[in-house]
Write a protein that binds this DNA or RNA. Structure first.
Length: 524
RNA sequence: GCCCCCAUCGUCUAGCGGCCCAGGAUUCCGCCCUUUCAAGGCGGCGGCACGGGUUCGAAUCCCGUUGGGGGCGCCA
């Protein structure tokens, strides 16, 4: 295995199998990441010099997959007392936007993922935004060119596409064929005279390359698939393959935790790091989060961005807890983990290798649990926002009193307004309520009379219950028979928070008005 | 097409050769509680993809098959 020997013989690149949990390969280096091998049994990820990062490209809202990667990386840093870095990879100028960076920052902060270095906080290894480090990448590219580790490629995108199609039709692996690697002096001069634009490609060594991964162990990529790749576009902007590798070295990352989709790029980045004469970080490639069909999570799926979950009334601790369990578990039993417990228990080497299906039902269940544990103040504030989003002004004081009626009835706070709308806006009985009201004029009139007997000052859930239960018994009705029509009249629905408390909060006059109106109108 | 990764209830997972005729959570179903809906309690259905090895013994190790996923860009 040539890849093994390449990396395995030089002292800078020595790795060995240590008894990780699961007998996986773990990197061993003498000086750079001593924290990884403290006890020789598994990488405990302790030590102040652990450095992890999240390096998203700002092309839209923060996707749950990236959010989970950020979380795992952050947990690894926090657990070790190390450093967490946010780096913005905006080298795709077509798609990157400043707005996306703002959303990214907001989403991460909302999740409670903070960074020690990066945008808005600075740090010793800036810039943390790649388009602000362009000359640095240009310098590295020049150096690679000078050292013969890279070369100019004059092939146009059209030519490349044609040759790719051709290779595909011949049943060969598509990929750069190395055409410009050994251009003659004459050919080179001709292209230069033409003023033909060029990109810069990295010259791969032509050997197999083995990657060690904290989660997967050892993987060898055959040389035939490791084609020369573009590190610098013709417009002077570096590609991800160069920028990420250079920055991971520059920012002294010890652990690179990222999605499995990036695994095939690892041997290339390893080579770039080698060319830089740098020690590689430990890699951990996370299994992907997929949609219900096992397919890639698409926009068609309920909500894929953290921003959307926030808008719908999910709690950050619920999303964090749920995401943590996507591909990881502390043990056979534990489901709920606080942020502190996660930091305490998280171990990236225990991450599963299987793709995880995002199960919205379970997230909702978990969110319901966290809602039940939340304070009234917080829920009232969130409900206020939800009402505002619906265009219904909701009195904060009344909302605060209403929270106990709904907190164990919501999976997401966004469901609150439907449950409490009757308190803040007029009601029109829905279809089921209308049906429940049919022929109930007598009952409603009696209820009105009974409640009229309660003075303003004695209008509480218990006095209301006492009065209405008395009525129910006097009429010889089952509770349900007596209360459903009243519920329909007061709330306009057949499903509502508990009736007596609801009536108390609605208030004496509005309640009586609704009862009278329904008794004379629909109830007749 | 080629390369790489992966494979335990529908879903998330525990499992590191005997503790497992496989444990937890969610979903679904039933019962209890109950003024509706929830919440809560109790119970139930449901899984080691398949085929070969290795071993006294395999969900666990090896090989193959099948299935799924990722990648093969002047995207990241």
């Amino acid at each position: 295995m040539s890849g093994r020997s390449r990396l395995g013989t030089s002292s800078r690149w020595r790795w060995r199998a240590s008894g990780c949990s699961r007998t996986r390969w773990c990197p061993v280096t003498d000086e750079t990441v001593p924290a990884l091998v403290a006890d020789g049994t598994r990488p405990p990820a302790t030590g102040r010099d652990v450095r992890c990062r999240i390096a998203p490209s700002p092309t839209g809202e923060l996707h749950v997959g990236n959010a989970r990667t950020a979380l795992f990386s952050w947990l690894t840093a926090r657990r070790s007392g190390g450093t967490f870095v946010l780096r913005v990879e905006d080298t795709d100028r077509e798609r990157s936007t400043d707005e996306a960076i703002e959303i990214l920052i907001r989403s991460l902060r909302w999740l409670g993922i903070d960074w020690d270095e990066g945008p808005e906080v600075g740090g010793p290894y800036g810039p943390y935004r790649q388009t602000e480090a362009l000359d640095l990448f240009a310098g590295v590219t020049r150096r690679f060119l000078d050292e013969g580790r890279a070369y100019r490629c004059y092939c146009t995108p059209e030519e490349l596409e044609d040759r790719r199609q051709e290779a595909l039709s011949r049943g060969e692996t598509p990929g750069y064929d190395g055409r410009c690697r050994n251009l003659s002096a004459a050919e080179l001069a001709a292209f230069e005279r033409e003023g033909r634009p060029f990109a810069v490609r990295f010259a791969m060594p032509g050997t197999d390359i083995t990657v060690w991964d904290l989660i997967r162990g050892e993987t060898t990529f055959p040389a035939s698939d490791l084609r020369d790749f573009v590190i610098m576009r013709s417009n002077g902007i570096p590609t991800y393959l160069l920028a990420a590798a250079v920055d991971d070295v520059r920012m002294k990352m010890t652990h690179v935790i990222r999605g499995e989709d990036l695994m095939p790029s690892t041997p290339r980045q390893l080579e770039v790091m080698r060319a830089l004469g740098a020690e590689p970080p430990a890699y951990a490639h996370l299994p992907l989060i997929v949609g219900p069909g096992g397919q890639k999570l698409s926009k068609r799926f309920h909500a894929v961005s953290v921003e959307r979950f926030r808008e719908e009334g999910f709690l950050p601790e619920a999303l964090v807890n749920y995401m943590a369990l996507l591909g990881w578990s502390r043990d056979a039993e534990t489901t709920f983990l606080s942020r502190e417990e996660l930091i305490e228990a998280f171990d990236v080497t225990r991450v599963s290798r299987n793709p995880a299906v995002f199960d919205l039902a379970k997230l909702e269940w978990m969110n319901g649990h966290y809602i039940r544990e939340s304070s009234g103040e917080r829920l009232a504030a969130m409900l206020g926002e939800a009402f505002a989003a619906d265009g219904v002004p909701a009195d904060p004081a009344l909302l605060m009193r209403a929270v106990p009626l709904v907190k164990e009835r919501m999976k997401v706070v966004g469901e609150g307004p439907a449950l409490l709308r009757f308190l803040f806006a007029g009601v029109e009985p829905d279809e089921r309520a209308a049906k429940a009201l049919e022929g109930q004029a007598g009952l409603l009139a009696e209820a009105t009379a009974v409640l009229e007997g309660l003075p303003e000052g004695g209008w509480t859930a218990s006095t209301i219950e006492e009065a209405l239960r008395g009525l129910q018994e006097r009429l010889g009705l089952k509770p349900k028979e007596a209360f459903q029509p009243i519920r329909a009249a007061v709330t306009g629905t057949t499903v509502s928070p508990p009736l007596f408390e609801s009536i108390e909060l609605l208030g004496r006059e509005p309640t009586l008005a609704r009862l009278r109106a329904t008794a004379t109108a629909g109830g007749a």
